[in-house]
Simulated scan of single mutants.
Amino acid sequence: MHKLVAVISLVSVLFSMAPAKAGPTEDAAAVRAQWEQVYNSGDADKFSALYTKDSLLFGSTAQLFVGTEGARTYFTKLPPGIKAKMGDQQAIAVGPNVLLSSGFADFTLKDGTVLPFRLTFAMVKVDGQWLIAQHHGSPMPK
């Protein structure tokens, strides 16, 4: 009988526990991993779907690209065959639906040249999905 009570007690404790939630670092890392995967796929539509409809994107060119169409345009202007690899990053939550993430990424050109960059994303949660609202990339200083 004591074993049955112990099992029932354990089961009720387990069911009463709230599920673990990811923190800002984990959420930002997931967005960055998805961004890397989509970037490397070469699919401009999937790339632009990672951005909000009014996003701002400063990438590796001088032009500011706005919105999902701007993200698509930016992506299609890149030389083909570039691959991205995300590096270390830090993230903070500035609200329940806003994350800021700054970190590093290496971009490898078709000829094997590696371009180290700094990337900063501001992410917002829209309908339960994290999207990039602001993206800034700049080459690492020498």
Rank of each mutant, 00 (worst) to 15 (best):
V11C: 13
S101E: 02
A44T: 11
Y74Q: 09
V126E: 11
N97P: 00
K53P: 11
A133H: 13
F58L: 15
H135Q: 14
A91E: 00
D54E: 15
Y51V: 06
S41I: 04
T68R: 12
W130L: 00
Y39K: 01
V98P: 05
W35L: 14
S41R: 09
P141Y: 06
L56K: 13
G95P: 03
A6K: 12
K77N: 13
Q37W: 00
A133K: 14
E69Y: 08
M140D: 10
L64M: 15
Q89D: 02
T108A: 03
P19L: 05
A30P: 07
L100C: 07
K142Q: 07
D27W: 01
F121C: 04
G87C: 04
F104I: 01
Y51N: 12
D106Y: 05
Y51A: 12
H2A: 11
T108I: 04
Y39A: 08
A20P: 02
V13C: 11
M17N: 03
V31N: 07
R32Y: 06
G59W: 02
T52G: 11
E69L: 11
F121L: 06
D45M: 07
S102C: 05
F107G: 06
V5E: 11
Y51F: 15
D88K: 13
S9E: 09
R32P: 00
E26R: 01
G95F: 01
T76W: 08
L56T: 10
A30E: 04
Q34K: 15
A91T: 00
F58E: 04
T52E: 06
